[in-house]
Amino acid sequence: MVEVRNLHKKFGELHVLKGLNVEVKKGEVLVIIGPSGSGKSTFLRCLNHLELPTEGEVIIDGVNLEDRRTNINHVRRWVGMVFQHFNLFPHLTALQNITLAPTKVLGMAEEDAKREGMELLRKVGLRDKADAYPEQLSGGQKQRVAIARALAMKPKLMLFDEPTSALDPEMIGEVLEVMRNLAMEGMTMIVVSHEMGFAREVADRIMLLADGVIVEEGSPKQFFTNPRQERTKLFLSKIL
């Protein structure tokens, strides 16, 4: 589903990603952890070209993003992204947030989009919030709407960039619950998160990114109980 080859990203002199090779299979859940500034967000953003790679290739479901003939807007339709700060559209209701892209980008009929939007709101447990504006929602509710908004495009791949790190502790669970269900339905997911409980339970693979390189990757079991690298042990000791 996702294949990343020798991915480099530089911001001027700053070399953030230093040749990453990553493969994610269909239905797989990859959790990425790593210290602040290690390039986790940059990596995710390269996967839908919110950042352009300096070097290397990103191939998603057989489509090479670096190919000049690739229309990135088409690829983004089926690569959903969930942001740390939700980025809901404040001038639209929860339901309108969800139906905007399907109607304007896919040309879906308004009623169909609404029906599917309501179904998605039900799925994230917010059917009664359809007409609420983002400012009337709690952080956890906002993030669940944001997930529903991404799902409305029927993505093949979902990218989550620290979806719970801006939330109050009591709201983290409800968002992780939605993500867990999504994983169980077979969604391919790449998640940047330091929720180790979630990683342990849901991830197929965990990857530690530090200083722009992959320090270690492996199954949750191996990663937590028997890390190979000193760097991993050090990092885990800080966050666990």
Partner: peptide, 14 residues
Amino acid sequence: DRGQMEAARSLGMT
């Protein structure tokens, strides 16, 4: 906020 444009673009909008 820059995130508004990014969210919109990430949904496939031009």
